[in-house]
Amino acid sequence: MSDRRYRCTCPGATVWVTGPPLADRLAAAYALADRLAAERRRVEVLDRFDGPGTNAERAGLLAEVLARNGVVAIVPCAAEAVAAVRARHEASGTRYVEVCVAGRESPQDSVAAVQGLLAGRC
């Protein structure tokens, strides 16, 4: 349903986590999920969409659907297809946050950066 009258009013969002290596992306994604769950937010980590043969645009579509329905969908994915995913979210009016874990001291630094971005867009 694309009719805005039927959309969830909960503040969902897609958080796209990029940067090498995959272990850092996953650590940041799960640290963020733990922190958001502790705040009683609905959260889902889509961690099966990274690697050979995966489709980042498909992950973006799934994340957008979840976000439109009040879930914070966290996608620790490589940077390919980011522009298409971002454009799709903008077109549908769905909140979208990108964070790169490269150059951060720890996953907690990435989590703090994302929480600041999410708080600024609520």
Rank of each mutant, 00 (worst) to 15 (best):
A59K: 10
E44D: 07
A23Y: 04
D47I: 04
G103N: 11
E57Y: 08
D109W: 09
G120P: 02
E80I: 11
V65G: 05
R41P: 00
A33N: 01
A33C: 03
H89K: 08
A67I: 13
L118P: 00
V71E: 10
R86C: 07
R121Y: 05
A27D: 08
R88D: 06
A67V: 11
D24Q: 12
C77G: 08
A63H: 12
A56G: 00
R42C: 03
R41F: 03
W16K: 07
L46M: 09
L22R: 15
A56S: 06
R68Q: 15
L26A: 02
S110D: 12
G103F: 12
A112C: 02
P76I: 07
G116Y: 02
L36P: 05
V82N: 10
V111W: 03
V101A: 03
A112D: 13
C10M: 13
P52M: 09
A91W: 13
A102Y: 07
P11V: 00
S2C: 10
P11W: 00
F49W: 08
R40A: 09
L32C: 02
A27H: 06
V15S: 03
F49A: 01
E105D: 14
A91S: 13
P76E: 09
R41A: 03
A56M: 04
V72N: 00
L22V: 14
T14Q: 15
T94L: 08
Q115K: 15
D24M: 13
Q115R: 15
E39G: 04
E90D: 15
S106G: 04
A27L: 09
A78N: 11
V15Q: 05
V15D: 03
E39F: 01
P20F: 13
R121L: 12
T14M: 15
A38F: 05
S106F: 05
G93L: 11
D24G: 06
R48F: 02
R41Q: 11
D47M: 00
L32Q: 02
A87P: 06
A56H: 12
R41K: 06
L22C: 00
R48E: 06
G51Y: 01
P107G: 14
C10S: 15
R5P: 00
G103V: 14
A83K: 13
V45Y: 01
C100M: 09
A112T: 13
G53T: 11
A56K: 04
A73C: 06
A102S: 11
E80W: 08
P21E: 01
A63S: 14
A29H: 05
D50N: 09
A59Q: 05
P11H: 04
V75F: 00
A31G: 15
C122E: 12
V17M: 08
P20W: 13
V43W: 03
R95L: 10
A81F: 11
A59C: 10
P76T: 12
V82K: 13
L26P: 01
R5V: 11
S92I: 08
L36E: 04
G116N: 09
R42Y: 09
L36M: 12
R4L: 15
P21T: 13
T14F: 03
G60I: 10
G60E: 05
R95A: 12
L62Y: 12
G60M: 07
P107S: 07
G103Y: 11
A29N: 02
V111M: 06
A37G: 08
S106H: 09
A113Y: 04
S110R: 09
F49S: 02
A29Y: 07
P52H: 10
D3P: 00
L46Q: 04
G103D: 06
Y30I: 04
